[in-house]
Design a protein around this nucleic acid. Structure first.
Lengths: 191, 191
DNA sequence: AGAGTGAGTGATTGACCACTCATAGGGAGG
DNA sequence: CCTCCCTATGAGTGGTCAATCACTCACTCT
């Protein structure tokens, strides 16, 4: 019967959930867990706010789902970096992972969601999600690189430096202090 | 006339402002700029919410004032660390500053306010305050230590690592990943 | 064609929040 | 003792937010 426009109009709930998790990143990235409204998230996903509550039990579960989604994308990115390493040497693997990470955070959203989650850790469920995120990341980096503890720690320290620099929007600044912090940091332009 | 209790009942506005900036730290540290209510801040300071608005023009100005207050305390702490250095050697000065910083962030509040401010940088006034904070910190560390750019950068990278670890409450955890991240980090118990 | 299932929404609710205003009361100077 | 300024508050106000509910419509199976 719908001969003209063969486009289907309805999606499955699972497809919608995936869309929401993708589009909610930018919303939560800008204003964090408390500062983002469910109406805003719904608008980004192109659905009504009421339906958002059919897809997720409440705002907290929605946020945790978004954080988990980001965690998974970061892991995939690290794995991709490890696969591209030119040799099995721990330092080479770490460098290749760092390069992949630098490319990943070219879009601010992903990174900012993780920082926002880190800051909203006073909610137990969110703190648990953040701890799980870093637990899996650290274990993965350890396993994939085989590097020494100190090297892994420094890898993450540099990662946190990246995060902070991006969060405070200091990548573009042409001041001495900003140049000191961003020394040697690869900065890929957005998209 | 008030012979029994000689305690005064009124304070000057300046004294009250100082009290608010001290007590608001814990409130903003836990739930950030958006998640903290002005009523909460007023209650912590022991004044009415209405009077808070006589001391500060609005919530944003209040938050920025608290961030500036934290920035000043951190600078004092770094200066104190530099003064205690055993020699003028850049590495020794940096190490002494790091030690002082580790002691400072024994109370989570100060550090979390800075992280929360970093995450609320979508508000221009807050972003400016955060950038000013790090600008002065980096310049101070550079001037006081005389260290090379790379060393200064690594100093701050380790600082951000500290921040993240404290934020996600991983200092106490006895898991391999948490131990990797906290390697060699001095952890002073609260208060 | 008609019944049943799941996608999707408009309207609403009660709680709460940033911010305001009229006013009460302490303390110092005259 | 009176008065004037400053500290301080109670009682709102308009607006917004998370969450709910009754309801419509699209699609499928028989």
């Amino acid at each position: 019967m719908p001969s003209k426009t063969s486009q289907r109009t309805l999606s499955t709930a699972e497809e919608r959930r995936a869309t929401v998790m993708r589009t909610a990143i930018d919303a939560f990235a800008a204003r964090g867990y408390y500062g983002t409204t469910t109406t805003e998230v719904a608008k980004h996903a192109g659905i009504s706010q009421a339906y958002l509550y059919r897809l997720f039990p409440d705002k907290e579960a929605l946020f945790v789902a978004v954080v988990d989604h980001c965690a998974q994308r970061i892991r995939e990115c690290l794995a991709d970096g490890a696969a591209r390493a030119e040799s099995g040497d721990p330092q080479a693997v770490l460098a290749s992972m760092a390069e992949a990470y630098a490319r990943l955070i070219a879009d601010r959203g992903l990174l900012m969601v993780v920082m926002q989650a880190n800051c909203a850790a006073s909610e137990p469920a969110i703190r648990d999600a953040v701890q799980a995120l870093y637990a899996r990341q650290v274990e993965y980096v350890r396993a994939a690189s085989g590097a020494a503890e100190e090297q892994i720690q420094e890898f993450f320290a540099r990662g946190f430096l990246c995060n902070a620099v991006v969060a405070m929007e200091a990548e573009g600044l042409d001041t001495p202090w900003a140049r000191t912090l961003t020394l040697g940091l690869r900065h890929y332009p957005a998209e």
